[in-house]
Design a protein around this nucleic acid. Structure first.
Length: 261
DNA sequence: ATGGTAGGTCTCCTA
């Protein structure tokens, strides 16, 4: 029985924010870091720089301009097969088994565009199809000894957003999305962060760039998640809110959970 | 009610 500290961060360009990773590592002391929106093609991945931070074992799947996911680990990794969600070849999911037998799924779910209506916004349809396929996948492949993390781009619970009422028709908090996400979660997963933070307490991991003073307005949403299977025990959690004030930072903040594997 | 910012990149797309 050992413990594993797993961090997740939508870094919104790995190359631009490489210099912020030492701060994350110092504060969260992760064994594994899952990144989303790396925005770097595989052939340009900054492998030497990442390994110099103490993470010798790295898996990445990136493309030009958009998306991109990576897993950085102090422990050896074995890459696991992942479906081609919606047959788009998008770099939105990467999966690995960590030495010791815990599996990691790192997801970047489509944001879904601005209009919450799939008949006029195909990006919203893509998002709904993606979460439906993810649900079906885990229903058919029930996870064990696994942790699912990432930017799921949905804030499922009332206090995962600054105003439940005002966001009910805003993409990320519409009923069709939140119900879809909770149905996916119900296929074998527990919401690790909400095991630590009561349902009536506000909990955010993202604040828009479009606020002059994100902390004063505090119009946040919980878009980033850590789920665990019931055969693992989540021991603690940390939301690195201060990272939102780092120089030239992401609009998401890092989240870390320690599990007993 | 509106617009606000950021990153990557053949100038607008995505978030």
């Amino acid at each position: 029985m050992s413990t594993l500290r797993i961090a997740t961060w939508n870094i919104n360009s790995l190359r631009l924010r490489l210099k912020l990773l030492p701060g994350l590592i110092e504060q969260l002391r992760p064994d594994v870091i899952c990144l989303q929106e790396t925005k770097v093609p595989d052939e340009l991945f900054p492998m030497a720089e990442v390994q110099a931070l103490g993470f010798a074992h790295v898996l990445h799947w990136g493309m030009k301009g958009y998306n991109g996911v990576a897993i950085l680990s102090r422990l050896p990794l074995r890459r696991l097969d992942a479906p081609d969600w919606c047959a788009k070849g998008d770099c939105r999911h990467i999966s690995a088994e960590i030495e010791g037998g815990v599996s990691i799924h790192n997801f970047y779910v489509p944001a879904g565009g601005d209009v919450a209506d799939r008949t006029v916004n195909e990006k919203f349809g893509h998002k709904l199809d993606f979460i439906a396929q993810a649900r079906a996948h885990f229903a058919a492949n029930r996870p064990t000894r696994s942790v699912l993390v990432g930017d799921l781009n949905i804030a499922p619970l009332e206090h995962d957003v600054w105003s439940h009422k005002q966001l009910l028709d805003v993409v990320s908090h519409t009923p069709v999305e939140t119900e879809g996400l909770l149905a996916w979660q119900a296929e074998g997963w527990h919401d690790a962060l909400r095991q630590f933070v009561p349902l009536h307490e506000k909990l955010y991991t993202w604040w828009s760039y479009r606020n002059r003073d994100w902390r004063a307005s505090n119009r946040g949403r919980r878009l980033d998640h850590v789920w665990t299977t019931p055969d693992l025990t989540a021991l603690s959690h940390e939301i690195l809110v201060d990272a939102r004030d780092w120089e030239q930072t992401s609009d998401h903040v890092p989240v870390c959970v320690e599990v007993r594997g």
